[in-house]
Computed example of a mutant assay.
Amino acid sequence: MTITEGRGPEERKRDVLARLERETDIWVASADAGGLPCLVALWFVWDGASVWLSTRITNPTGRNLRDGGRTRLAFGDTQDVVLIDGDVRTYDGKDVPAAAIDAFRAKTGWDPREDSDSYAFFQVRPRTVQALDGVHEMRGRHVMEDGVWVV
């Protein structure tokens, strides 16, 4: 195997931001109080500072996000990965900011509140973002640390 030079930090950040705008689904990892993991793909919206998700508060992911207050989000396959670790704030359908609803509807064509009162919204504020395209990009993969872009 030949290891080639990877992208620089600015290019990685640009690629992450482009994916946050372009992608429709994101992997959402959470765990319950006992540590039982849960992994699902959900539609999402990026507002420039936070990722917004919606799912029923009555399902394991909804409960885990609400109760745990943390998540790991992911795009890509093993050769083109974006990992986002973030803090979660939960909103019910009545309290979610109108701008988040408008952006969610514009991107997905769906307003979860119209389906069921059990849908909640989850604002994920990134704390750490990693971006790597293969093993040669392991070094320098952190493009955000402690909630601040490093580039």
Rank of each mutant, 00 (worst) to 15 (best):
G76K: 14
G76R: 12
K94V: 14
A49V: 09
D111K: 04
A49P: 04
E145K: 12
G93T: 05
S116F: 11
D80Y: 03
L20C: 03
A106F: 02
V28L: 09
L42R: 14
L42H: 11
V81L: 05
E11H: 07
A31K: 11
Q79F: 01
R139T: 15
D15Q: 05
Q79R: 02
V81A: 13
L83G: 08
Q79M: 07
P37D: 05
A100Y: 13
R105E: 15
F122H: 12
E114I: 03
W52P: 06
T90G: 03
A29M: 03
E21D: 10
E5Y: 04
T58L: 12
A120L: 03
R113P: 15
L73K: 01
D146C: 06
V82Y: 04
E114A: 14
T4A: 11
L53E: 12
T128G: 01
R56S: 13
P37H: 04
V124A: 04
T71I: 00
W27S: 08
A106T: 15
V135F: 06
V40Q: 09
T108N: 13
G8K: 15
L36P: 07
R70N: 08
A74Q: 13
D133V: 10
L53G: 11
L36V: 11
Q79D: 10
M1R: 10
A99F: 06
L39P: 00
I26V: 03
E114L: 13
K13E: 07
L83D: 11
Q79K: 04
S116Y: 10
T61D: 10
T2Q: 14
A33I: 11
V148L: 01
D111R: 03
T71L: 00
S50L: 10
G147P: 07
W46A: 00
V81K: 00
D146R: 15
R125Y: 09
D67I: 04
L39G: 02
L42A: 11
R72M: 08
R139H: 05
V28D: 08
A106N: 02
E114V: 08
L83A: 10
F75I: 04
L20R: 06
F121R: 07
N59C: 04
V143K: 01
R125N: 07
A99C: 01
E21P: 01
E11V: 10
G140E: 11
R72F: 00
D85E: 12
V45D: 06
T2D: 12
A131T: 05
D80V: 10
